[in-house]
Amino acid sequence: MAKIIVVTSGKGGVGKTTTSSAISTGLALRGHKTAVIDFDIGLRNLDLIMNCERRVVYDFVNVINGEATLKQALIKDKRCENLFILPASQTRDKDALTKEGVEQVLNELKELGFEYVICDSPAGIEHGAFMALYFADEAVVVANPEVSSVRDSDRILGILQSKSRKAELGENVTEHLLITRYDPERVARGEMLGVADVEEILATKLLGVIPECQSVLKASNQGVPVIHDTESRAGKAYADAVARLTGEQVEHRFLTPEHKSLFQRLFRRSA
C-alpha cells in the first residue's frame, strides 16, 4: 500500500524541491521503494536538484497522454537503489495534468510496488499545486520562519482540509510542518519567529526544523540531495525528519544557537 505524500507550501522558494529530494532520498536510503514526482509543469527543477537532467527522455505529461509508459519515464536514481524520479514536462501547459491522469499514474505506481510516492508541488494555489495535493494521504507543509511564508502555509493547510480527496471523503490528510532556513541565533535575538511561534500559529504537528545551512546550496550546485551530506546540519536534520515520517521518535536538534569559540565569534564564520 503506497503512501502518497505531498510536499507543498503555497509560497515559492521556501525549499519544496530541496525537501522533496531529501525526503525521497532519505526514504529510499532506509530501504523503501520510493518515487518522487515533479508537478511543476513548465518549470521543472527536481531533475536538476537530483542530477538527472540529462537523462530525461519522457516525462509525467507523456505518461498521462499515453505517449510513453510509466516504466519508460521513470528515471532510476544513480545513488540510491530504491529511488525513481518522474520529471515534469518542460514544454506543456500545466492544464495537461488531469485528475484522472494523475490518479492513473499513482495507481500504476502502487501496482509497481512503490511504498512511498512524494509529490513535489509547484508554488501557488493554482491547478498544478491542487493536482499535487489532491490525492495525498499525508502533507509536508514547508515554511520559512517569515510572515508571508507562514500566511501562505495556512492557506495551503485550509485547502488540504477542504479540497483534497480525503477531505471530500470526510477524512483528514495527515499534516506535518517542516520549518526550513531556521536561524537559531536570530531567533535568540528576537529577529526571527521561533519554532513554537510558527507551530502555534499554524496549529500543525512539527515534523522537523532544517537550520539555515551552507550545505543546501552546495548540494544543489552539485545535484546531490543534501541528505547525502551526513556531516552537515541540514543533512542531519532531514535524516531526522525522514525517521519521524516513518514513525520513529527522534529528538529535535539545531533549535538553539551553537556554542562558538571566541575565535569563531570574532570572525563570524559559520560552519
Binding site: E146, V147, V150, R151, D154, R155, G158, S162, V187, R189, G190, E191, M192, L193, G194, D197, I201, L202
Partner: peptide
C-alpha cells in the same frame, strides 16, 4: 533584544491575519 524584538511583532500580525482569513475561508 528588548528594543528590536521584531519577531514578536511578526507573530502578533500573523495571528490576527491568519484568524481573519480562516474565518473568511
Amino acid at each position: 533584544r528588548k528594543k528590536n524584538n521584531t519577531a514578536s511583532i511578526a507573530k502578533e500580525r500573523l495571528q490576527v491575519i491568519v484568524a481573519h482569513e480562516r474565518r473568511q475561508n
